Amino acid sequence: MNEQLHNFFLSQEEPNKACLLALRSIILKQDQHITETQKYGMPCFCYKKKMFCYLWTDKKTSQPYILFVEGKHLDHPELESGDRARMKILRVDPNKDLPLRTIESILKMALDLYHTGILKIKE
């Protein structure tokens, strides 16, 4: 983890810090081709150098969420698009156990967009 990302996580207050670090770990372990960087001040996860998802916190509720860049291709009842045309988010309550099955299921759906060729990756 680079210093900027490290500082991002360290600057979060609990319980968000632990929640965001746990989400980071869950995302990174899904596929060996997932890497992390920082874009727009947020932790960004890429699949084979293509932006895949972000971690962020809601400005109003301060609750963490995972933002899926190609969310418009994902159909899951827990995902919200709000006023976004392309992206969808999965809200996470940092005061409860993480819904691991839901998170992993949506991450798999998102990765399958690349694995199946629905979304092309330039290599």
Rank of each mutant, 00 (worst) to 15 (best):
I106V: 14
I66G: 00
I103G: 04
R84F: 14
F9L: 11
A110Y: 01
L55D: 07
F8L: 09
I118E: 13
Q32C: 09
I27Y: 06
K50I: 13
K29I: 08
F45K: 05
C46R: 14
E70F: 12
L107E: 09
K60R: 12
V92A: 05
L23H: 03
Q63H: 14
K60G: 10
E13R: 02
P64G: 07
L20D: 01
G82W: 00
P99V: 11
Y65F: 14
L100H: 11
R84N: 14
I106A: 08
A18D: 03
F45T: 05
D93Q: 08
A18S: 15
F45I: 09
D97G: 10
T61R: 02
K59M: 11
D83W: 13
E123L: 13
I26E: 08
E70A: 14
T102I: 14
E3S: 08
Q32D: 15
H115E: 14
L119D: 05
E36S: 08
S25D: 15
Y65A: 09
L20M: 15
Q38C: 12
Y54Q: 00
A18G: 10
K39Q: 09
L113C: 09
C44I: 05
L113V: 06
K49T: 11
N95W: 02
T57M: 10
F52D: 03
P94L: 06
T57R: 12
L28P: 04
Q38F: 07
D75A: 10
N2Y: 03
L113N: 01
I103P: 02
L113W: 06
N16W: 00
F9S: 08
S25V: 02
R91G: 07
D112G: 01
I103E: 03
E70T: 09
M42P: 04
L100E: 11
